[in-house]
């Protein structure tokens, strides 16, 4: 309980004060997030459309190849001359999608972490922050791409399994792991590098668990609030999302920067 009274509550309050004292910076931070989301939608829509086309074409061609009379395996069918070109293109499209996510994430989060440090009256340079975020994001993009791949395989498996039995909760476990990975990623971005973040988590396991609890509580509360607003008027969900979700993100960034900085300072002392 000491850790909550002496560390977590004061940091929560301080992060809130930083946000209240800097409304313009908060607006800028929200705008950067919104702009990144809009850019992602604009850039990823044609890639998703093309990916869908490729999946339909590959699916149709493979099913033709797998007709009993021809007796081929899926892998042989995928490597055949008329399909392999589409498979290669599909992987290139996935690479392009990953590149779009990486670039937009590195830039938007770099700028936003810089804004968060500005709100905390810390010296900050946007370009330096973007390069730091880009380095950490490079590691996380590999981990999260792996998680996305496992999820896709699990989803395909679930479609097949659900024809025979009830769900086993595997997808819920995967979703939970993904949420944990995202919170861990946030801690590493706030700590300044992947290595520092992992060190902080391994040294402060209990504190990190509290941070996970706070994050889940915050977004759980926002989700309930949005559902309540949605039951009154669907348009209120959009407004509520803008006024609750983005400030919450900004608050969480400041909170994580403060918590990780405190512990790093103690470790150095």
């Amino acid at each position: 309980m000491k850790i909550i009274q002496k560390l977590i509550i004061p940091k929560c309050i301080r992060a809130g004060v930083c946000i209240i004292n800097n409304p313009l910076a908060l607006l800028a931070s929200a705008l950067v997030d919104v702009l990144a989301l809009v850019m992602f939608g604009y850039l990823s829509a044609p890639v998703y459309a093309k990916l869908t086309e490729h999946i339909i074409i590959i699916g149709t061609l493979v099913s033709q190849k797998l007709q009993p009379a021809r007796g081929q395996s899926v892998l042989t069918a995928l490597y055949s001359v008329d399909i392999s070109g589409f498979v290669k293109q599909m992987f290139l499209l996935l690479g392009l999608l990953l590149m779009i996510v990486y670039v937009l994430f590195a830039i938007s989060q770099g700028v936003n972490f810089s804004i968060a440090k500005y709100m905390m009256n810390r010296k900050t340079a946007i370009i330096e922050e973007i390069t730091t975020t880009a380095k950490t994001a490079a590691v996380w993009s590999i981990i999260l791409a792996g998680a996305y791949f496992i999820r896709t395989v699990a989803e395909i498996r679930q479609v097949i399994v659900s024809k025979f039995s009830e769900g086993i909760g595997f997808m819920q476990v995967l979703e939970g792991i993904e949420v944990l990975l995202i919170i861990t990623a946030l801690a590493t971005f706030a700590a300044g590098s992947f290595r520092k973040g992992v060190l902080w988590i391994s040294n402060q396991k209990l504190l990190f668990l509290y941070c996970i609890g706070i994050t889940l509580l915050l977004f759980g509360a926002i989700s309930i609030a949005l559902r309540l607003l949605g039951s009154i008027n669907p348009m209120l969900v959009l407004l509520g999302g803008l006024f609750l979700f983005f400030p919450a993100l900004a608050w969480l960034r400041i909170f994580f920067i403060q918590i990780t900085a405190e512990m790093t300072r103690k470790a150095e002392a």
Binding site: L43, P46, V47, K50, H54, I57, Q89, L96, M99, I100
Partner: peptide, 16 residues
């Protein structure tokens, strides 16, 4: 480069 790539996606990744 990303904007140009996505704008010309039909040329770069042709499908019948």
């Amino acid at each position: 480069a990303l904007v140009v790539l996505t704008a010309n996606i039909d040329v770069l990744f042709p499908t019948p």
